[in-house]
């Protein structure tokens, strides 16, 4: 599975539809480079990136915190 497929598998979660982050059926077509601004999706991208590149958890966590902090 590549990064995009992994991201798509997360976007299939009903939370994304409930909160209106993605539309129904959109998950499977979602591109890694989708420009939509959504903090949760962005955090997911960082997490997946970190895991796929075998980054340490601490490093990824710092990146996420930096992103979410002002």
């Amino acid at each position: 599975m590549n990064k995009e497929q992994i991201l798509q598998s997360f976007l299939e979660d009903e939370l994304f539809i409930e909160r209106g982050y993605v539309k129904e059926g959109e998950a499977q077509k979602f591109k890694w480079t989708d420009p939509r601004k959504n903090n949760l999706i962005e955090v997911l991208r960082m997490a997946i990136d970190g895991v796929m590149s075998k980054e340490s958890e601490g490093v990824t966590a710092r990146k996420v915190n930096s992103f979410l902090n002002p």
Binding site: F10, D13, R19, L40, A47, V64, L68, N69, P70
Partner: peptide, 26 residues
């Protein structure tokens, strides 16, 4: 409280929910 903190807390709570349920589903 700072808005970013509210948002951060919310986003990371959702992240945790989604991470667990996706793992189980997959």
């Amino acid at each position: 409280l700072p808005a970013y903190l509210e948002e951060k807390k919310r986003v990371l709570e959702e992240f945790a929910i989604v991470a667990k349920s996706t793992r189980d589903r997959v």
